[in-house]
Design a protein around this nucleic acid. Sequence first.
RNA 1: GUGGCCAUAGCUCAAUGGUAGAGCCCCAGAUUGUGGUUCUGGCUGUUGCGGGUUCGAGUCCCGUUGGCCACCCCA
Length: 420
Amino acid sequence: MQPLPGFRDFLPDDCAARNFIFARWREVCRRYGFVEWDGPVLEPTELYKKKSGPEIVAQLFNFTDKGDREVALRPELTPTLARVVAAHEREFRKPLKWFSIGQFFRYEKQQRGRLREHFQLNCDIIGDSSEEADAEVLALMIDLFRSFGFTENDLRIYISHRGAWAAFLQHQGHNFSAERMQEFLAIVDKLDALKPEISDEKLKALGVSLDLVNRFISMPENYFDGFNTLADKMKVRGLGRFITIRPAIVRGLAYYTGFVFEAFSLSGKLRAIAGGGRYDNLIGQLSDGAVSLPALGFAMGDVVLGEMIQDVPAARARVADFVRREYALDIYLIIAKEERRSDALRQLQQLRESGWRIDYPLTPAKVGKQFQTAEALGAKATLLYGDEWPAVKMKTLATREEILIPNEEVPARVKQALSS
RNA sequence: GUGGCCAUAGCUCAAUGGUAGAGCCCCAGAUUGUGGUUCUGGCUGUUGCGGGUUCGAGUCCCGUUGGCCACCCCA
């Protein structure tokens, strides 16, 4: 039996690496004053059908449950967030700064960096429409990357703004409906992939020329001051070098209204590592107008991030170090004489209650074998119980130094030896 | 969803159509109670699965499942 396609087993090393990623996510988010929350893994399919746009619905991992409900494993968190916030917003002071770490699903053919399941960090600020909030979220994203050991040489965050496109087009005399705007942005999104003649043709169908579009792309700051404001705010924080204005970045989800951004690895091998934007209307839509709050946020997945970590030596070394420490022991007990097993277990329990990580042989084994096990489990020291009793022989594995200590002094001496 | 490449031991991979192998891992030893190295020995296969061609198929053909890559799409 194998796991289902696109689903992963996490062996101990994989789990430790995952814990490392989660630990950095939590640590940096808390540093920014974000609090953690979570929602259900299974939602009514309806939640995604109307609000996220048709793109995501085609890839839902959905089914009918035993109560004849149409349900879907969550493909993203934002619709759930919008629902929860609409229902509970009065209980919280604004702005909300919330983050969440959870598993998300999609039903599609898997490929490198893209499975049917992944873990994702979501960070959102709700109830603040200022550009300061935009900058705060971007800074958070950058510091998250920095916490893994990445620098401005490893990745770049490209920033665009849907409102900027609308304003530019209006300035040029075009007034697009929401649907036409969506159509237009889809073409812009593919400018790099398609031949200029084809893009031009598609744009002409909307009454816009490729020349016009390129004019904006080459000098966006001249047409939209918000880019300058944001860039200045990032420079003040010393993070300006991480961001690049790139109007052609348009995210696929329909609900974005303002700034949108995507982080890319500069090695060019990977897809977007993270992305997000402002969605000022979504909460209002999902609550049928009962609650209207501006919001913005982003998400970053563990799969692509993990691959990027493997690509960058400094980041890879941090993970390896963490993985090694994740389950390394403090002490391994050597039971050299089986008649000392009870004495050893009594001290084992005592030491565990003090918080030390200790393991020991469950069945009788040769002393040499026990030392091998101690080494393999990463123990810093061993405590040997045998003919020396009532004294215990403590050995520091790194230095091979052995000292004889009275058993009643073991807790104190262990503390002394391992605290340094 | 479409197309191309691939599938051999737990892992990485060998094997002109002619008796399936190596390295690593794991386990056990190298004289009585001391670890990373070394040495010796041991374990492991319906060659992904199902058909077909052939005297004979890991090898050739068809199907199927799974993986990788590209396209589509994108959290």
